[in-house]
């Protein structure tokens, strides 16, 4: 059986909120290392990969591998019933028909309990190769969100060009063009504002802004976002969570002109 207790419901609320417009039905794969999710969007352009390590829960118990097939719209409805600060416990039997969610208020004696019916989801798992990326950029997640939203007002696509000069986000559309360039920057007092660019070779790739703006819904999960790029491979957008847990998005590049 599975029993996983989260100190704050907020974490799961934010994760589900960040991915629910990209993927609808997905398996939450539970084993003794934690709860993982991997799903592609309908058009097979983007891939979501979430890992909530067992250390992110206290306690965490999962005796055998269980796949919880959950509709994210249903999960969102139930998670709305939890206060952000509630303690959240996920429970399931070994061959479950439902997943049980318990919300407890730390401040009062309220205890809410919900069951969500599970679905049989035949999901293909993709092997994501270990990649030595040519460029890795760490930057404030709010800054990345603003850049993506701003550029989407002008164009459907953004080119991300990383050189030793810095990283340039550029677009052009019917009304004109725009770009934002960032250089490495260290803020000793506010390290969450740092921009770090680690480059082994120059990279230039083009991506759909619609997807990037969607990924940025995860901005509330982490002060910093990491962008990993290599020529002609999908972009990795990573939001690191506590205890080595993470929410990652992969986006296939656009090609040609």
């Amino acid at each position: 059986m599975l029993e996983a207790r989260l100190e704050q419901a907020n974490l799961l609320k934010k994760v589900v909120d960040a991915i629910k417009d990209l993927v609808q039905d997905c398996n939450f794969d539970c084993n003794d290392s934690g709860i993982a999710l991997q799903a592609m969007d309908n058009s097979h352009v983007a891939l979501v990969s979430m890992m909530l390590k067992s250390e992110s829960f206290s306690p965490f118990r999962c005796d055998r591998n269980i796949a919880l097939g959950i509709n994210l719209t249903s999960l969102t409805k139930v998670l709305r019933c939890a206060a952000n600060e509630d303690i959240l416990t996920l429970k399931a039997e070994d061959a479950p028909d439902v997943v049980n969610l318990v919300f407890e208020s730390a401040e009062s004696d309220r205890l809410s309990e919900y069951d969500i019916k599970l679905m049989d989801i035949d999901q293909e798992h993709l092997g994501i190769p270990e990649t030595e990326y040519a460029a890795t950029i760490s930057m404030p997640s709010a800054e990345f969100q603003k850049i993506c939203r701003d550029l989407m007002a002008l164009s459907e696509s953004v080119s991300i060009e990383c050189t030793k000069e810095g990283v340039k986000f550029a677009c052009s559309g019917d009304i004109g063009s725009g770009s934002v360039t960032l250089r490495s920057h260290t803020n000793v007092e506010k390290p969450q504002l740092n921009v770090e660019i680690d480059l082994s070779e120059p990279v230039a790739l083009t991506f759909s802004l619609k997807y990037l703006v969607n990924f940025c819904k995860a901005s509330g999960l982490s002060e910093q976002v990491r962008l990993c790029l290599s020529n002609e491979v999908p972009l990795l957008v990573e939001y690191a969570l506590s205890n080595n847990s993470y929410l990652r998005f992969y986006l296939a590049p656009k090609i040609g002109d």
Partner: peptide
């Protein structure tokens, strides 16, 4: 116009 690649072109099915 630009073409959009599929993620399946990069990551193989397990």
């Amino acid at each position: 116009s630009t073409g959009q690649k599929s993620i399946l072109g990069f990551f193989s099915k397990k």
